[in-house]
Design a protein around this nucleic acid. Structure first.
Lengths: 363, 363
DNA sequence: CTGTTAGCGCATTCAG
DNA sequence: CTGAATGCGCTAACAG
């Protein structure tokens, strides 16, 4: 170690004090020294948890301003306090629906003075687990997650310890975890009922993997509507490409009683279906009526404009984030979590057979 | 402080050691004790920077496995090492283009074992500045940003200190900062040239704020194409709503020499224009040909399918992120930054007047 | 090759 | 109401 001429170890703190104005970011003890108080007093002024005399408070505030002091977030977090960050795990960021949720989350987080660490799971439980672990390592104060598949899910209270967690868009098996969902079944059922009112009897449900909660729940809504009307369900899952959908549709249309309407599970499948329909030379809604789940920016400008179930993406992100911050503030981990279900809207455009010039919304 | 019966301060470390198996996460000294070595040896085994004897290494590894020890990220970051996190600042997350960039960034970050803190600037320089500051406070190892307006920008090397920064999609005024862009002017010029080849003489450019780099650069490309063809430019900025666009278009169409084609600056304006055109009862491409900037998922299924300039969103995010990690690894801050420009493609569909059944791409 | 010491900036003891 | 000491988990610098 460096020694002074007297043989004493050099006082590092003093060295730093000398260099303070030059380079280093001001620390709490810089402030304390300038204000002529102890570091604890500064700490107390900052946190405001304990009373400090008005005069002292003033001196400290001035010193803080003068040095442009900002507490070191990392030191705080390290010390075991709040990290003032939350984690957000979603399947994909390039999906506008998930991205909208994420947007709302970052907005709410900012209101609370929080940063958001975002990562994607790609619908893979292993990746999801690894990312949760990573976030926990980083001591996030809370976790927001759109769980991937329910099967094989490793998302349980035990994993999270006492870190608050809110699942949204899709639930987790652990009932102690708060959940925010939308009316998947209801939305699906309503739009199918609407198709039935248009006189359709053969309605096909085209979907992605049934192992996704939303996809399956929407299917149940579809089936329910069909059953209630005394109609036969016909669902096809794993519509994972335009080619596949084209083949399916081609086969279906060649049947004795071909479908007169199709309903999709989400925007991706909508895209495949539109492509397939166009390639097969079918016209909407005359040859085949159409309704989709999940509205998107240009659904109004497709040919024809699409009837869809609209989900409140940003609203869901906002509600989930607020719920999380509530948990963080209260510091409690409830035995049974909340389960909030947000309403959806049916946006009637023309693909279902409606003649409205403009969109018509059912709440 | 708690005293033992002998009046000695209780050895906290020993207390912890006793409780270790019960509750607490294992620390480096737990590992060290179990392996019968000093903490530094453990540290060295972990970092791998200094040679440690094979045998000792083995013992340490075993202890690590046994305790399921994972180094404390926060302590590391606090200690002044890497935080293994980068910051990403984009205007909006609900915009699919920006979200796609963000997706690619998170993917690259994961490959490097990094977390990403994402936040939105809402195109506001003040928010942007505040968020940069916040990230710097959090000691991110690097920063990726889509700068908001160039005017009033407070993004300079001085602000960032020695933290590497890469700007993408839009440049910053400071030339020492690395930048990744796409061929905005070229893309715009090409697509306008294409319209001119279709015989159009009166082509209007409809755009958002000119103070956005991309919007203005695309305008320059448009103007260049028009000038080269000896045609007169006609651009309208601040097309911020469907109503405004409708009025503008209505007025233009009533002129002696109405436009026969329009070009938009980005997808948002495309949306407004499609709405306005539809409300005015105009048909594309017969009454008015159309070309847009920025491709989107369902551009193929609008009526008619849209001709657009396609930007490599994910590619841009990937390139920018890789560049950043390169800087982080080398630890150097160059005097003059890189400036990478990525190529765009022209996707010819039918709104421009082409008759292709499927999309045709020009590179 | 390995261990010891010290300190990053803060907040929780405890003692005035 | 205020201050001093202490340690969070880790690693740079030094000493063996």
């Amino acid at each position: 170690m460096a020694k002074s001429l007297t043989g004493q170890p050099v006082n590092k703190a003093r060295q730093r004090a000398a260099a303070a104005a030059v380079n280093r970011k001001p620390t709490m003890s810089d402030v304390a020294r300038l204000a002529g108080v102890g570091t604890m007093t500064v700490s107390r002024v900052l946190s405001g948890t304990v009373r400090v005399s008005a005069e002292t408070t003033q001196r400290v505030q001035t010193a803080i301003q003068q040095l442009n002091y900002r507490p070191n977030v990392l030191a705080r977090a390290f010390r075991g306090q709040r990290s003032h960050s939350i984690g957000l795990i979603i399947p994909y960021l390039y999906d506008p629906f998930f991205a909208s949720c994420a947007h709302a989350v970052t907005a709410v987080a900012r209101e609370h003075g929080y940063s958001v660490i975002i990562t994607t799971s790609n619908e893979d439980p292993e990746t999801e687990f690894a990312e949760v672990d990573e976030m926990l390592q980083r001591h996030v104060d809370g976790l927001l997650v759109i769980p991937s598949r329910v099967r094989n899910s490793r998302l349980t209270r035990a994993l999270f310890g006492k870190t608050p967690v809110v699942a949204f868009d899709r639930p987790v098996s652990d009932p102690s975890i708060d959940t925010v969902l939308v009316q998947n079944a209801v939305g699906s059922r309503r739009v199918v009922e609407h198709l039935i009112e248009h006189g359709h009897r053969h309605i096909t449900y085209l979907a992605l993997s049934r192992s996704l909660f939303t996809i399956n729940t929407r299917f149940l809504g579809y089936r329910r509507a069909m059953q209630d009307a005394g109609l036969e369900s016909c669902a096809v899952f794993d519509c994972t490409s335009e080619e596949i959908v084209e083949q399916i549709l081609k086969a279906k249309m060649a049947l004795d009683t071909p479908p007169t309407a199709v309903v999709t599970s989400n925007t991706l499948v909508t895209r495949y279906v539109l492509g397939a329909i166009s390639r097969l030379g079918l016209r909407i809604p005359t040859d085949l009526a159409f309704a989709g789940f999940d509205d998107f920016d240009l659904a109004e400008f497709t040919s024809p404009p699409l009837t869809v179930v609209r989900q409140p993406a940003q609203e869901m992100g906002r509600v989930a984030a607020n719920l999380l911050f509530d948990r963080i503030a209260r510091g409690e981990t409830p035995h049974t979590g909340n389960r909030i279900v947000l309403p959806v809207e049916i946006v009637l455009r023309r693909s279902c057979g409606c003649k409205h010039r403009a969109a018509f919304v059912i709440h």
